[in-house]
Design a protein around this nucleic acid. Structure first.
Lengths: 216, 216
DNA sequence: TCGTGTGAATCGGTTCACAGCA
DNA sequence: TGCTGTGAACCGATTCACACGA
């Protein structure tokens, strides 16, 4: 589930420090969750802990990696090589976790041909070919809002079944295609909401109903 | 709550198209949620719809904006002006939603002094002064993982109470400080998990327990 | 009549608390 | 003894379904 990557990161840190064994209490603290939740999450994978002792770090890393599908190699394409696309292309955390940046695509002639992180940016006209030839099943969309749906349609037609969307639009996709959305503006708006509550609620309005609202 | 920004975005699109009124059904479709959920969410803000008709777009935009605190001006600092920081600094969606990029900070001498989106990058040594002088209450951290906690401590000490963290670490902050985390690598890992399930589950293991797992 | 607003039912996820095993 | 694994209680959020009002 969605917290396994967080546990995995914490475990990697522990492993680097040479820690061989963790209790659910310790790992939960490192991951920022409570220990009962962590144990329940891990129990879904199987019974990989030892009662009275804890979990063996290396073994748990392997089990979680396998569960998440990180023991295989995923070819990823990034479409849209603006600042955000570049940030993603250059982010080291991907390669070390089973992800391989296999293609960068952009529509801008000034950007096509540029070499970023060892990859040459290709023209978006070649999108279909590039995706099929590289066996890409995951696409990252870092394109302008107006381009997002058309590009989405094209990558889906080419065989992509998982999309990470940074454009501020709700994409529509066929069944069987997963979309995750990261919207930087929405994150800020949620912070502003909390910030405002700290400052005393919306100006000039009763605050009662505010109690009913919000979690994370 | 966390979906209001999504509704707001959809409403802005409708307003631009000149739509005066929407039903919960239509707005829910545009926002990608179901209509009962949308109505329940909106009812927390008050009774702003008309039975038999729907919601007046402009009025609802205003009410949601006020609820989210977007009718006031929030000064935001971005710390870490790599590709990601630049992408954030240049993202137009902020300014139009009550957010004002008030400061850019970096540790790299080659970057300090650079002008991005009309702002001069300042040195991180001046962080405390810059935050206090500009009345900044929201900070965006786009720094390397190792720098995140120290920078976080400094912005909190300077008076920041909301943090949007892009570094892949769990930040620890005092009570009263909100942290939201965006982790690009985790998003991809979650996609990989789903992708793997489509392909038939983790190699060599029974799939039964997989049924118990995962939502979005 | 039509669509909002909302009790009531439902669902899923979190937390509690302890039985069971190393 | 100490900590995992898990049934049971709990809690919030989602969905259903319809009364109510424009």
């Amino acid at each position: 589930m969605a917290r396994l990557p967080v546990y995995l990161r914490a475990l990697h840190v522990l492993a680097e420090r040479g820690v061989a064994t963790v209790s659910s209490e310790e790992l939960a603290a490192a991951a920022g969750v409570n220990s009962a939740k962590l144990r329940k999450d891990l129990s879904h994978l199987g019974s990989y802990g030892t009662r009275g002792v804890g979990y063996e770090v290396e073994y748990l890393v392997y089990q979680i990696s396998r569960e998440l599908g990180l023991t295989q190699d995923w070819a990823v394409a990034i479409v849209g090589i603006g600042n955000l696309g570049r940030a993603l292309a250059g982010y080291g955390g991907f390669a070390s976790r089973g992800f391989r940046m296999a293609a960068l695509l952009d529509a801008e002639p000034g950007i096509v041909g540029e070499v970023i992180a060892g990859l040459t940016v290709e023209h978006i006209d070649d999108l279909e070919t590039v995706i099929k030839d590289n066996g890409i099943s995951i696409a990252v969309l870092a394109v302008p809002a107006a381009a997002a749906q058309p590009v989405c349609d094209r990558v889906v037609t080419s065989g992509v079944t998982s999309i990470l969307n940074f454009a501020p639009v709700v994409l529509s996709v066929p069944d069987g295609v997963d979309v995750r959305k990261v919207d930087l503006s929405i994150e800020l708006q949620i912070l502003a909401f909390h910030e405002q509550r700290k400052a005393g609620g919306p100006s000039g309005v009763e605050e009662e109903y505010l109690e009913a609202v919000e979690g994370q």
